[in-house]
Amino acid sequence: MKSFLTLLVTFFIGFSLFGQSDFNLGFLPKVVVGKKLSDQTKWVNSIESRTIVYDEDYQFSHSLVDVSSILSFKINTNQSVNFGYIIRFEDSEIIHRTFQHYNIVSSFSSLKLGHRFAFEQFYQTQKQTTFRTRYRVSLEKPLNGERVDVSEFYIKIGNEYLYDFDEDDLEIRFTPYLGYQATKKDKVEFGLDYRLSTFIHNQTENRLWIRATWYISL
């Protein structure tokens, strides 16, 4: 717990030193429901809401809602592929997204190291299809012992890079989370989702999301 709090303090100090004037703050609640269909297949559905609580105009606004569905296929003990679909409701517009993931998870004693390689396609009315690729690396560690048991906490730290081919833009994300295994069937994660983008065009945007996610296994 102390290590996680130290990480958050360090993050906020760095953010205050290097943050730019274009800054948004918001809240990202999410519910994820997964069901194992077989030893190799899992079906995962989620709904996520995005609310902006601060921007340059000091406005509070509801930004969007994402509803997703994913089929995950395990290749072997530490590799899997995902095929998914997201429908986004943003203002009066509906955006459709398909995506493909290749995942690798390695375990080292009490530490889990994950890699995710992704390719995404966006479909919008009166706009040509756009493409984005992304890579994420993550570390997960229990705060007690070598594995996460019921009623125990864990930390998860992620770093992700997203490249938009249409906008020629690179976005970097940093995500420190504190997780709690409530029961064998559900867990919750709380943390930050900091996103830095458009810096390669000298128009840096900083977005800080406060994220809360509830994972449910059926």
Results as ranks from 00 to 15, higher is better:
164 D>E: 03
107 S>E: 12
84 G>T: 08
173 R>T: 05
178 L>N: 00
113 L>D: 02
177 Y>P: 01
148 V>R: 01
80 S>N: 02
74 K>W: 08
103 N>K: 00
67 V>A: 14
35 K>A: 15
87 I>V: 14
121 Q>M: 09
194 Y>H: 03
173 R>W: 04
56 E>L: 03
53 V>H: 00
151 S>Y: 15
123 Y>S: 12
68 S>G: 11
110 S>M: 11
18 F>E: 00
136 R>Q: 02
66 D>W: 09
95 I>Q: 10
133 T>V: 15
63 S>Q: 15
124 Q>V: 10
173 R>Q: 04
100 Q>V: 13
175 T>L: 06
115 H>A: 03
53 V>D: 02
195 R>P: 01
154 Y>L: 01
81 V>K: 02
213 T>H: 04
122 F>N: 02
80 S>D: 07
154 Y>Q: 00
192 L>Q: 06
67 V>Q: 11
75 I>G: 07
69 S>K: 12
139 L>W: 06
88 R>N: 11
93 E>K: 14
184 K>N: 06
75 I>T: 11
109 S>I: 10
204 T>S: 03
145 G>T: 13
33 V>W: 14
129 T>P: 02
120 E>H: 03
203 Q>H: 03
49 S>M: 12
74 K>R: 13
165 F>K: 06
75 I>Q: 14
60 F>E: 01
85 Y>D: 00
49 S>H: 07
111 L>S: 08
112 K>C: 11
10 T>W: 14
75 I>Y: 08
133 T>M: 12
41 T>E: 04
65 V>L: 14
